[in-house]
Deep mutational scan, measured.
Amino acid sequence: SAEDNLGPLPENWEMAYTENGEVYFIDHNTKTTSWLDPRCLNKQQK
């Protein structure tokens, strides 16, 4: 699965689903949400 390739979410991040079944990500560090997987963003920065 995609999660196996990317590994676990960063600390204090949570994956959630909208009512429509779309995946989004919650950053409890900054109390924000994102459509972008933080694991993908980390890979792009390196």
Rank of each mutant, 00 (worst) to 15 (best):
T32M: 09
F25W: 09
E3A: 10
D27K: 00
L6F: 06
L36T: 10
A2Q: 14
K43P: 14
E22K: 08
V23R: 15
E11A: 12
Q45T: 14
H28D: 03
T18C: 09
T18S: 12
Q45E: 14
E22D: 08
D27P: 00
N29F: 07
W13T: 05
P38Q: 00
E19S: 14
W35I: 04
G21A: 10
N5M: 08
H28W: 05
G21Q: 14
E19Y: 06
E14Q: 08
P10I: 00
E19C: 10
E3R: 08
A16C: 08
L41G: 15
M15E: 09
Q45M: 14
P8E: 08
N20T: 15
K43I: 14
S1C: 09
C40D: 14
N20L: 12
Q45D: 15
E11P: 13
K43M: 12
P38N: 00
Q45S: 13
G7D: 11
N5K: 12
S34G: 04
K46H: 15
G21S: 11
Q44S: 13
A2N: 09
T33L: 02
G7H: 08
V23E: 14
L9T: 03
R39S: 03
S1A: 10
A16G: 10
T33Q: 02
D27E: 08
Y24P: 01
L9E: 02
D37I: 00
N5R: 12
A2P: 10
K31F: 06
E11R: 14
Y24V: 03
G7S: 10
T18G: 06
F25I: 00
P8T: 11
G21W: 05
N12C: 06
Q44R: 15
M15H: 05
L36F: 13
E14R: 05
N20A: 13
L36G: 06
Y17G: 06
Y17S: 14
D27V: 00
Y17E: 15
Q45Y: 12
K46L: 04
T33G: 01
E3P: 07
K46F: 09
P10V: 01
T18I: 03
F25R: 01
N12T: 09
F25D: 00
L36R: 09
N12W: 07
D4N: 15
Y17L: 13
V23S: 09
I26T: 05
P38M: 01
N29R: 13
D27G: 00
A2H: 10
S1W: 06
F25Q: 00
T33S: 05
E19N: 12
Y24S: 02
P10L: 03
P10Y: 02
T32F: 05
L9C: 03
S34I: 00
R39M: 02
L41T: 15
K31M: 14
E3K: 09
K43W: 11
T18D: 06
E3Q: 13
N5Q: 09
P8N: 09
N42A: 13
E22L: 05
E3H: 12
D27W: 00
T30Y: 05
T30S: 11
T33Y: 01
L36E: 08
P10R: 02
T30L: 09
L6R: 12
Q44F: 08
L41E: 15
E22M: 05
D4W: 06
S34W: 00
E19D: 14
A2E: 11
G7C: 06
T18V: 04
Y24C: 03
T18Q: 06
T33H: 03
K46A: 07
Q45H: 12
P38C: 00
E19M: 13
P8Q: 10
K31R: 13
F25L: 01
N12A: 10
E14L: 04
H28S: 06
W13C: 08
P10F: 03
N29M: 07
L9N: 01
L41I: 11
D37F: 03
A16M: 06
Y24N: 01
K46D: 14
Y17R: 15
M15L: 13
N20H: 14
A2L: 14
A2T: 15
N20P: 07
L6E: 09
D4F: 11
G21R: 12
D4I: 14
Q44T: 15
K31A: 07
G7L: 09
L36S: 08
I26R: 06
V23L: 15
E22G: 05
D37W: 01
M15T: 08
Y24Q: 03
Q44K: 15
K31E: 07
T18K: 09
E14Y: 04
K43L: 13
W13M: 11
Q44M: 07
A16E: 07
C40N: 13
W13K: 02
S1G: 08
W35C: 04
N42E: 15
L9A: 02
T32E: 01
K31N: 07
E11G: 09
S1V: 04
D4T: 10
N20E: 14
N5L: 09
T18E: 04
P38G: 00
K31C: 05
W35M: 05
A16W: 03
E11T: 13
S34L: 00
K43Y: 11
N42H: 12
L36K: 12
Q45A: 12
W35H: 04
S1L: 06
H28G: 05
S1P: 02
N29G: 12
N12K: 10
E22Q: 11
N20F: 07
W13E: 00
W13V: 09
D37A: 03
L41Y: 13
T18Y: 03
E11L: 10
L6H: 07
S34R: 02
P8L: 06
E3N: 11
V23P: 15
T32Y: 03
Y17D: 05
D37S: 03
C40H: 15
R39D: 00
P10C: 00
W13I: 09
P10S: 02
P10T: 02
G21T: 04
N29D: 12
G7V: 09
D27C: 04
T32I: 13
E14D: 11
P38E: 00
D37P: 04
S1N: 04
N20M: 14
N5E: 10
N12V: 02
P8A: 11
K43Q: 12
L6Q: 10
L41Q: 14
M15Q: 14
Q44I: 04
W13P: 01
L6D: 12
L36I: 10
T33F: 01
V23D: 05
F25S: 01
E22Y: 03
D27I: 00
I26Y: 02
K46P: 00
L9R: 02
D27T: 02
Y17Q: 12
Q45F: 07
Q45C: 13
H28C: 04
L9G: 01
V23Y: 12
C40E: 15
N29Q: 08
N29H: 11
E3W: 05
Y17T: 15
E22W: 03
